[in-house]
Each structure stands twice: as C-alpha cells, then as structure tokens.
C-alpha cells in the first residue's frame, strides 16, 4: 500500500476543527498554567506550613511523573469522586496543572532572586506584605521568567496531543477519526504534524514579540 494524499482534502473540515480545538486547549491550559504557576509559587514560598508541605509533595509528584499518567489520574480520578467533567475541561485542567507546576518552579526561583531591597522599599512606603508581593516582587519575577515560561508554553502545545487519549477531539484525535475511515495513518498523521508545526511557528512568533515588548519596558 503506497501513499495517497488525495484522500486528505475530503477530511480537511474535521482536521481544521481539530486545529481549532488544539489551539483552544493550548490557550486554555497556557492561561491556567501561567496564573496557576504564579499562585503555586506564592503558596510554595509564603503559604503557612500546612499548605506549603502538601503543596511540595504535590509539586514533587507532578514533576516526577509523566503527563500522560497524570491525565489518566485526573480524568478517571475525578469520575471516581463523582465529578464527571467533559473531556475538554479535564484536558485543560490536566495540562494546565502539569505546566503550572513547572512554571511555579521558574517563578519561585525568580521571586527569590528579586532584590531584598524591593520588598523593603515597598514596605517602607506602607504597603503590606501581600500588596508588596502583588505589585512589586511578583511582577518583576514574572517578567524575568517570560522567556523560559514561553518555552514551557511551546512544550504545552506539543503535549496537548496527549489529551487525545482521554477523548478530547483535538488535532490528533481528529486525525485518528479520519484514519478510522480511510486506513491511511501515514498521510493523516503527517498532515497533523504539519499543522502542529505551523501552529508551533505561530506561537514562537507571538512569544518572541511578547519577549521583545517585555524587554523594552526595562
């Protein structure tokens, strides 16, 4: 059986819908992982011990195990405790939490690296610790880690393919649907790869622009 790409156009609508869902899930998870990362970082550094310790364990577990395994846990685990989320939502949560932990690592390091004088200056003006963190320390830390967080977001896009295994109809699963009808895996997976590649380029372009803008504000 040779290759025959002429079957592809007939399934382009399914594939394009998959592209849309892939972008949606990537955006959703990226936003969750960004704000989740900030939240986790603040908790990990400043939370009371009874929050900090369980969080450290959670962080450790999430950094030391595969994303795919975590997706299974979240998807089936939530069902187990009676929460039946749509696959898309479970996918966003799973991907978002996974990368939030990685972002949190970066942000924690950056927060620690912010000069102590910044907190002091803010406190001297009468800001509370929380206000100083929110307005002075955390914004600087986040700005410092925009490039590595961007790399995490790129990784997130590619890992979004994994949510196909819990039934999210994104690009990979769309390709699989088309393959189910045509028995042409090579053609459709290559097409899917091409779309991922293009989305990836687009994302890198956007991230570079953001980085440049952040740099300019220094």
């Amino acid at each position: 059986m040779g290759l025959d790409f002429t079957v592809v156009p007939g399934y382009l609508d399914i594939i394009l819908l998959g592209v849309v869902w892939t972008i949606a899930i990537t955006l959703g998870a990226a936003i969750l992982s960004f704000f989740g990362g900030i939240f986790f970082a603040v908790i990990a550094l400043y939370g009371p011990w009874f929050v900090r310790l369980p969080f450290r364990a959670f962080e450790w577990l999430f950094m030391g195990t595969p994303l795919l395994l975590q997706l299974f846990l979240i998807y089936f685990g939530l069902v187990q405790i009676g929460i039946d989320l749509p696959a898309f939502v479970a996918g966003v949560i799973g991907l978002g939490l996974h990368f939030a932990v990685y972002n949190s690592e970066l942000i924690q390091t950056a927060i620690i690296a912010v000069d102590r004088g910044q907190m002091e200056a803010a406190r001297t003006l009468g800001l509370s610790r929380g206000q100083a963190l929110r307005k002075v320390v955390v914004p600087q830390a986040v700005r410092d880690v925009i490039p590595p967080i961007g790399n995490n977001m790129i990784a997130l896009l590619k890992d979004s393919a994994l949510v196909s295994v819990i039934g999210v109809s994104e690009l990979t699963l769309s390709a699989q649907r088309a393959i189910g009808n045509t028995y042409r895996p090579f053609e459709f997976y290559v097409v899917a790869a091409a779309f991922y590649y293009v989305i990836n380029l687009g994302m890198e372009w956007v991230l570079r622009r953001i980085e440049r803008r952040v740099q300019a504000a220094r």
Binding site: M1, G2, L3, K158, D159, S160, A161, L162, S164, T172, A175, I179, R184, P185, F186, E187, Y189, V190, A192, A193, Y196, Y197, N200, L201
Partner: peptide
C-alpha cells in the same frame, strides 16, 4: 522539536508499514 513526539511515534508505528 516542532511537532508532538506522539505524532512522530504514530507516523512511525502506524504509518511505517505503508512505506
């Protein structure tokens, strides 16, 4: 690096026999 590892794996495993 620009495409998902999962897709690369699928191309090789499921698409490989075609070539």
């Amino acid at each position: 690096r620009g495409t998902p590892a999962l897709i690369q794996l699928f191309i090789l495993y499921f698409g490989g026999p075609q070539i």
